[in-house]
Design a protein around this nucleic acid. Structure first.
Lengths: 397, 397
DNA sequence: CGGTTGCATGCAATCCTTTGCAGCATCAGT
DNA sequence: ACTGATGCTGCAAAGGATTGCATGCAACCG
């Protein structure tokens, strides 16, 4: 059927062993024969049978990826980065979605165990002991959380919270609310900690508004609490929550950012598509995905635990975040009494006083004059995801 | 290391063959021994080595899934359905993302070939001959397109276009524009064809406004053309394009749906989150994903081509679409001269005259009275994705 | 010139499961 | 009681690649 290593060997006049070595241990065979073997192999279109290889090496050539909900726009970009990077190293990715159900996570990890060489685990609510069990069964890298002595790739929540609080304080906000995510979520706890620190340093009051589901519905549910809290700015657990918040605030006639500034986390693609554009703390998911794959591959090539000189430090990468300022944040102050002011308008956003805010968008308020021409300058103003135009980023401290 | 079939055999006092049969051909072994074997197997936690099995059976237990861009919110829900369904049949899914690059599709299919038993191919722009080559290497099911005599799962574009046109015509629109997607895309051609038919039947004029990239930027780029076309309603190739359109129309001060109604396709999650909510032709991606897996599994269990009585009909499932009416569509007519009417507002949407439009939302315009209580009734009005409240669907014809 | 070293290659075992075939036992029928 | 059929089980052969070990050859040194 398919071309096997014996076919190549026969055609090249060598033994199967030599073919195998020519492919996987190139400098162990004579250059002349190696070239001949490789030429024959490519000519015949030989591709090693992964099952046969796996049977003897005990490796599958697969990486497992466990995540809570692919439908959350936060994940696809990370998944894409992971896939691309894994493929470059000749690994396949087996992805599994837990549907935000922590009870199935461990079961999925177990079923994944036999079929992968290593696991990238994105399970913000998994219990630490389960985490340990998962890591015991296969080399594991955590993403977006830490665990007891386990390799991890995280986003620098502490620094991120500082960015947000500093930015908002610079706009004059002294009362900031936080719409929390799931109580058991690692990043929720982490963000809360960072927020308390940052609020204390900046001298602003922090209102913790409870825990909500990390999606659009959660944002809707949080609205009333935000209103009665009497804050002038609110940070949501993620962009989906923020979107829900913005949506139902608008329905209540509450001006964003005039009466209330809203900030999200994740900087998902939608945040730049809607009106008003959502100010959000961006988490570089692509960088994280690549880092996780690199870390895992390194773990796989490294000798197992117990050997080596002393207990190797468990690797950990903390990725800096990046605040993307758009239109849901503005200086604190009463809603302008101006005649029939539009509900929300980009013009209301004066340049923040924080660092890196030199450029102003310069777009006029909604009832704008007709476009000067019909080609495309408008597109630039709307920050297509690829072009940095119109995105003002605060520099990292 | 791991527990093998021999361990189970030894513990159960039978030969490995019997264990194998007890697991895969249960009614071939004596019930007594079968029970004993199964009990021992589960007790020892035996899981067959997939590599060894694959080596002899020639099957991998994997399904390949090729798609153009996971970051397009249209796909994750389909991917989730595919995964869930495949796992139930004890298959794993190897997903590959082509990054919208048709030139890498064939290469990826080839690299996928040896590692999967069958392929679910979502490649709207792949050339027919490449399609055939892909299908020759492994059993293949096309999704969201057809190809020469190849099994396929599609959405009923023809019926969908009829739904949209009928609905818009019912609102009084006689000039409808279509913002097309990639010229080489199968569904683009299909939609165009359906639109022409439907427009002819309904007696409305159809303006074909060109081809654009199937994303937010494409919508931005299409805006000028839409404006000069002089239409009162426009259908976009997909929701992302529609969102771009809505966004830049708003920036130009063009009232949606007062002056221009906008309809998208896909009904991605975001469309119900933004304001104004996007009217969209929903494509049941979950249904499609499940259907594709079912079809592929059937293909895998069926005898290969050439056998059987005559050429079996190539399976094809056409999934009905479902129009979800929200706030970007309304009756044709000049923008109301009413005092400081908000740019867009749900109240402006009078019930469409189409079928199935009995319920009205009953939400008041934006400057609404304060909420009656502080719990959650607002959430209901905003159609959290799970609850059908607030989604008026036109019944299928 | 003999011995040793080192390199390149081949041999053969091994990974674990499935499955065609053979064997054995039991049972029914005559 | 013998024959034939039936049903369950075991034997052994794949299936393709990797790898420790052995072998053969050449080169080099003494």
């Amino acid at each position: 059927m398919a071309v096997t290593i014996r076919d190549v060997a026969r055609a090249a006049g060598v033994s199967p062993s030599t073919v195998s070595r020519a492919l996987s241990l190139p400098d162990m065979v004579d250059p002349t024969t190696r070239d001949r073997v490789l030429r024959v192999a490519t000519h015949l279109g030989y591709q090693p049978n992964r099952a046969a290889r796996g049977l003897i090496t005990g490796r599958t050539g697969n990486l497992g990826l466990l995540l809570p909900d692919l439908a959350n726009p936060f994940f696809p970009s990370m998944v894409k980065a992971i896939q691309r990077h894994a493929h470059q190293a000749d690994y396949q990715v087996l992805m599994m979605d837990t549907d935000e159900d922590p009870t199935v996570e461990l079961a999925l990890v177990r079923s994944l165990a036999k079929q992968v060489d290593g696991i990238i685990l994105c399970a913000p609510r998994m219990r630490p002991q389960d985490l340990r069990e998962a890591a015991a069964v296969r080399p594991t890298v955590l993403v977006n959380r830490t665990g007891r002595r386990l390799p991890a790739v995280t986003f620098d929540n502490h620094q991120g919270m500082h960015q947000v609080v500093t930015y908002l304080a610079g706009l004059g906000h002294t009362d900031i609310g936080f719409v929390g995510g799931p109580r058991s979520s690692w990043s929720n706890a982490e963000r809360l900690r960072g927020l308390r620190d940052a609020a204390g340093e900046a001298g602003v009051r922090l209102a913790e508004l409870g825990n909500f589901t990390p999606n659009f519905a959660g944002g809707l549910a949080a609205t009333d609490g935000v209103i009665v809290a009497g804050v002038t700015a609110v940070l949501a657990y993620n962009d989906l929550v923020a979107l829900g918040l913005v949506r139902s605030l608008a329905a209540r006639g509450i001006d964003v950012p005039g009466r209330l500034s809203v900030v999200g986390i994740d900087d998902i693609a939608v945040s730049s598509m809607i009106h008003p554009g959502l100010t959000s703390l961006g988490l570089p998911t692509g960088t994280a995905g690549r880092a996780a794959v690199d870390m895992l591959l390194q773990l796989l090539s490294a000798p197992g635990p117990g050997s080596g000189s002393g207990p190797a430090r468990t690797p950990h990468i903390d990725i800096p975040t990046e605040l993307v300022v758009r239109e849901t944040t503005g200086p604190v102050g009463p809603a302008p009494p101006g005649p029939k002011a539009p509900k929300t308008s980009a013009v209301r956003l004066s340049p923040p006083s924080g660092p890196g805010s030199s450029r102003s968008r310069g777009r006029s308020p909604r009832p704008s004059p007709p476009p000067p021409n019909l080609t495309d300058p408008v597109a630039d103003a709307f920050e297509p995801r690829s072009a940095p135009t119109g995105r003002r980023r605060t520099t990292r401290r």
